[in-house]
């Protein structure tokens, strides 16, 4: 079934009254997700955003609580905020990444209320990739340019209209108002089939990487891998699955807030103890942590690789440290059998 973009745009604009709508827009020489009021603001033709849409579930900088001190007393205010959102135009890689973040922000003991308030009140409208970037390798990560996993509603751009798939109950509820769905023409169906069968040209083999890394903590492989890395953290900040954060204090006179801010395992101070001891004081250890976390530890803890093949880390790295080559490198390591 499909809907014309004109009809879709009218519904979109109407929904903007009740929902905060986050969608891709042209931004500083690229495309990024921003809050929009009208469908006319939405960028129609883009590969993917420079930064992932994760920041709408897990903002780069967020107040957890605020406080006011008076003499020896203190009053604390919870800064948890709720609001309904629609995330429009989310690519399959980023939609899958949100499923992975879901596992991080809810573990066997704790649920992160700041993340889940947004998550539970967001509807994800996914959009298939008609064009594929040379740095995309989602097809190697059990995703494809047209996979609907993680989306509540999934769209395929057919030019003047969208092919619509309603995936979840949440999506169904949102689509209730859209009655003007019509059948696809044979030509359009052929186009949908083509887009659905597309694969990324770039591929890696992750079939054995987790088991391999189980045995590679002390491998000499890590000795040189990190050498050109500048520890700039761009890869982590651009990554849709990176979720590490810092908690710090912002204070003015007797008032302040406790805030959380994105942090990254590539930062030398990330693990520095008060005593001065630092368990990951070498860049080598930090690069190993980055790879191990995504391709080994995360799998052990959550059953999935924490990489979706979006290729943003490849595009954003100032020294061309390409994670696909690192994966190949791990695959090529010959384990010493003891």
């Amino acid at each position: 079934m499909k809907i014309t973009k004109e009809k879709f745009g009218q519904s979109f604009d109407a929904l903007a009254a009740d929902y905060q709508i986050i969608a891709p827009v042209s931004d500083a020489g690229g495309v990024n997700y921003k809050a929009v009021k009208s469908f006319s603001e939405v960028k129609q033709d883009y590969l993917n955003s420079k930064l992932p849409p994760k920041s709408f579930l897990f903002p780069q900088h967020e107040k957890l609580l605020s406080y006011k001190k008076e003499g020896k007393d203190v009053t604390i205010k919870n800064e948890l905020k709720v609001g309904k959102s629609i995330l429009f135009g989310v690519r399959p890689c980023d939609a899958k990444a949100m499923l992975l973040l879901d596992k991080v922000f809810k573990n066997d003991e704790y649920t992160d209320p700041y993340y889940y308030e947004r998550r539970d009140n967001s509807v994800i409208i996914g959009l298939a990739c008609n064009k594929i970037s040379p740095t995309c390798f989602c097809s190697s990560m059990s995703i494809s340019p047209a996979s609907s996993e993680g989306s509540d509603i999934f769209l395929i751009d057919l030019g003047d209209s969208y092919q619509v798939e309603v995936i979840t109950e949440k999506g169904k509820a949102l689509m209730a108002g859209l009655e003007e769905l019509v059948e696809l023409s044979a030509e359009e169906q052929a186009l949908v089939d083509t887009i659905k069968s597309a694969q990324t040209a770039s591929k890696v083999d992750v079939s054995t990487i987790t088991a391999k890394l189980d045995k590679m903590f002390d491998s000499p492989f890590w000795d040189t891998l990190h050498e050109k890395c500048l520890s700039c953290n761009a890869c982590s900040f651009a990554c849709p699955t990176c979720h590490c954060f810092d908690i710090s204090e912002e204070v003015h006179k007797n008032e302040g807030s406790r805030v959380r801010t994105w942090d990254a395992c590539m930062a030398p101070l990330f693990t520095l103890h008060g005593s001065g001891h630092n368990p990951r004081d070498k860049k080598k250890a930090r690069w190993r942590q980055r790879m191990m976390h995504k391709f080994n530890y995360f799998v052990h803890n959550n059953g999935d690789i924490a990489c979706v093949g979006c290729g943003r880390c490849i595009k954003s790295c100032p020294v061309n440290l390409d994670i696909r080559q690192v994966i190949d490198g791990v695959n090529n390591v010959e384990l010493v059998v003891d």
């Binding site: 810092d246 908690i247 368990p279 530890y297």
Partner: peptide
């Protein structure tokens, strides 16, 4: 064990030893 920690909930990602979080 001691580790640098922030959230204490096994989420913020810094106190791991392998797949284990020292905080949780």
């Amino acid at each position: 064990l001691e580790m640098r920690m922030k959230c204490g909930l096994g989420i913020c990602g810094r106190c791991n030893i392998g797949p284990k979080y020292v905080c949780k």
